[in-house]
Design a protein around this nucleic acid. Structure first.
Lengths: 144, 144
DNA sequence: TGACTTATGTTATACTGTAACGCTAATCCA
DNA sequence: TGGATTAGCGTTACAGTATAACATAAGTCA
């Protein structure tokens, strides 16, 4: 999906949920979109500063948190980063495959993988919450 | 396993591997053992300072890194923490179930769970590296 | 309009982790 | 044994990540 139609869908998504995709939040989302893969908060902050002058960390973190809440971004904890969610219309758990060599990130739906883990942990009485999973490894291109 | 026998096994483990469980490393391991579940590096640092006076972060991080290398501890990236490995004799991937409510951590062997994920990602040509997995959820006690 | 809520700006600081340098203690080998 | 070499540790300084707390501005609605 190109950035423009992604943004307009995001706009509609927020409207439906009765929350405001403000100028700042939209701008932050665009900045994340512009990057391929995972972006760091401080990278976004730097980009934002280049555009609009002085800005402090909370400005960016608040916008990112909002976007994660709305399902537009994933927070990838293991990488201290954020990544655009490709399918924010349906709720889902993300499964991220991070290549150790090239750093590229693939996103899958984790439902399948998680269900088998769910079954295993259910025996212990442990209930798994919805969440993103990050697996590191080596991608096709880097293996070759 | 109680701390004393754990430490003596750790001692033997290191000797077999031809590396030195020095006084400092042993001390750090003891401090981690003393905590139930996941410990933060800076918590260990604080404990160490209380015992031996001034100490800086690298002192603790180096010892922790060593212990992770030897398989005595797991580094739990998603939590920025460290936890004692219950079965360091066999190499394995850890699967950590972290309770959102009480913070307690269960360790399982991740081999089973990972294998199904492995199969899924293999179709994409992605090879998963050995790693620890963290799942958050709610434990038996907190569900009740 | 005025009261209220939400969003943003601003300052300061906490937490996590590492680079780089130098010294000391252990190990090795001629 | 003694000199070279390496491993371990102390120390300083700093980079990167994240949030608390308070002030201000902008939107909302009676």
């Amino acid at each position: 999906m190109d950035a423009v139609s992604y943004l307009s869908q995001a706009e509609r998504h927020c409207a439906q949920r009765g929350c405001r995709l403000t100028e700042l939040r939209r701008r932050v989302l665009e900045l994340v979109l512009r990057h391929d893969g995972v972006v760091k908060a401080y990278q976004v902050l730097a980009d934002l500063q280049r555009e609009r002058g002085p800005a402090a960390p909370p400005t960016v973190y608040r916008a990112l948190d909002f976007l994660v809440e709305q399902g537009l971004l994933h927070r990838v904890e293991a990488l201290n980063g954020f990544i655009v969610c490709e399918h924010f219309e349906c709720h889902h758990d993300g499964l991220f495959l991070v290549c150790q060599d090239c750093g590229r990130v693939l996103e899958l739906d984790a439902a399948q993988g998680l269900s088998s883990l769910c079954a295993a942990t259910a025996q212990l009485g442990f209930t798994i919450a919805p969440q993103n999973l990050v697996l590191t490894g080596t991608c096709k291109a880097c293996l070759a």
